[in-house]
Nucleic acid binder design. Sequence first.
DNA 1: CCCACACCTG
DNA 2: CAGGTGTGGG
Length: 773
Amino acid sequence: MPDHDNATLLARQTKRRRVDIGVKRTVGSVIFTRARETLLDRMNPTHCSDQDGDCPLVGHGHGSANGDGEKSNVLRKLLKRANSYEDAIMPFSGATIISQLLKSSIGKNGGSDSGFQGSGALSSGGSEIQNEDACSNSSRDQDSPSDCLSPGPHHPPPSSSSFGRPQPTSNHSSSQTLSLSTFDLDRLSDEHLRAKRARVENIIRGMSHSPSPGSRGGVVGVAEVYRENKRKQRLPQQQHSFTQLVCSRQEQRQEERRQLKLQLEDMQKQLRQLQEKFYQIYDSETEEEEENEEDGNLSEDSIRSDGLEERHRDRGRHGHDDLSDLDPGLFLDRARALLREQALIDGDLEEDTDSRGEEERSGDRGMKRRAAAGGGRQLAETLKQELNCAVSQVVDTVVKGFSSPKQAAAHHGCHSSTPAAPTPNYHSNQRLHCFGDVIVPSPLDSFGGLSGRLSGVPTPNDQTEALPLVVRKNGPDNTSHTLPPPPPPHHPSLHPSPLTASLGFSPPSFRHPFPLPLMGYPFQNPLGSHGYPPGPKDHHQSSPDSMDITREAVSLRTKMASLGGGHMGHHHHRQSSPNQHGSESLSLSLIKSECGDLQDMADISPYSGSTIQEGLSPNHLKKAKLMFFYTRYPSSNMLKMFFSDVKFNRCITSQLIKWFSNFREFYYIQMEKFARQAINDGVTGAEELTVGRDAELFRALNMHYNKANDFEVPDRFLEVAQVTLREFFNAIVAGKDADPSWKKAIYKVICKLDSEVPEVFKSPNCLQELLRD
DNA sequence: CCCACACCTG
DNA sequence: CAGGTGTGGG
């Protein structure tokens, strides 16, 4: 696996990552952030330089190739100390240990590893160079770098030893070469046999499925493994151990991946069965028949034709065709492909409420929907849940498989997706949540994520937190001391859109039994036509390595955000098709919710644009700014109302709140600045201060919140600004600014001057309506 | 304890 | 604009 990690990159990446984490920082959960950082730091093998090289074979085997003198020094020191250990171990090192290892390894073939790993033998029998290389290499496998530094017997972290298969014991003593080779051969043939079997199984499975790029992976992957093993044997002795260790690890991973893939395919099968079941019954209830039976080709074609293909091509660079064996992301791709397939199969039925794209689809689907809404609803719901369950299993499996080095449990119950217990694992919990935040919601959140909000059923995310400064005005009961109650919302183009009207209470009428957003999951790169091209970094997404994931993740949030740019108005309509049962995304709770960083998803969901924005887009920012003209202190509930196309979680809420906080900051700074300036200019009475549209103060503000000046700022804002300015003026004149908290009083006043935000702002595509050309 | 907030910093 | 921090209210 090519790895372009180097110290600088890592450093930069860590830096950016910090930022990213910070962005996602949940207010009040600094601890988590710090914990994650700590863990990350420990995971970043900054001291292990990394040559490129998949399973380093010939290149840099003799240590001299490592131009890292610092490391060598360290190692020398360590070796010095280690020598003393070695002396103690001596009697047991060499053949004795090796034969022991061999015994245990052979005997336990198929069992779980005892934790007695090849690297353990390394330090006793091998040279320091091996140690070093094993270290730098194992670090690629996410071993803690600290292992490299620990002198003496090398104790591999449990994480690396808990892959499914037992580790073939590495043997490095020259006196054991012969037995080693025979053992190796045995192992290889064993491996080969198993691979063959897996291949056959794959083929058999594949026959009932539509062909997909992933299904070829097993075959090629096996060949790859075999070839690598063959190459391994030609290695110089010194490298032998280390390489073997590495390769055996890779084998393990590949094996694991194969298993996961099998599971995935099982899931796929189940999905299809469910699907077929559904159609049997469903079609019997539907008078007219559709021609949506060519799903096989259809889905595959479309999978190929969308962004996925690009990704595959990317990955192909290092994986040839054995993508599914080598690439974690591909599993998720596959999972998504399943969804996609599902979507396409049901595509005809999709209720596309997009007003723009509506016309092309002749409205002949209505009948079906009606039928579905009829007697079959119960069944549909059941099927839906089962489907959801199946999908969840797939996702959970994959997630588990790759979020933790531990072997994913083979089978989960329908609701087993809840993380068993918070583990100290770097990947679990927080990160997983975020993981889900990104990937899952696109197709799956629509199962229930939105419905709660839209139907008024509180979701776990709904906040009922206390309101800032003063009691939130939840209505037109604004009682301003200095100003008359704010006029009704006004704007030239402020007419509640029909969509807006239906947002709050979309009738649970005819719904397709399958959540429609699932089907409509847009797999094509939504950025394509919308000016937010994937950054150059996107092309680095070739390595499945976690480090790569980490690297890619940095821009993800931005990417995610940019997905919304120009898109928020196009898909939000699907919101009107939530299912009625908000609990359907239950099993996704694992990956839903909360934030964290987006690392895991960088590699997995670069194109996860969908109905509900996972992040806040530039357009959202713009909208927020415009909203600031009406409300300076929006409650989070209000924000949820007005950013209904965003999947809210604590992070999003916090970010929005932060935005407004920043807006206020700027606002008040300007106020203070201009107030002081007025005082300096000799203004004596607050009455002299007015804020008109030509006022400098206003221009400054407008420049900030309405840079393009394409929004007509409500007069009310001018009034509020004027009041604020005068408040500041008076306070300063009165010398209150000596009090450290002198602004608080002003804030208290200003926060009462919020007006109602026009309804249009609730429409996700309000910008189009709001902005004058 | 969580959250919103202001403040400061980059 | 975001990150971090301290504060204060619930």
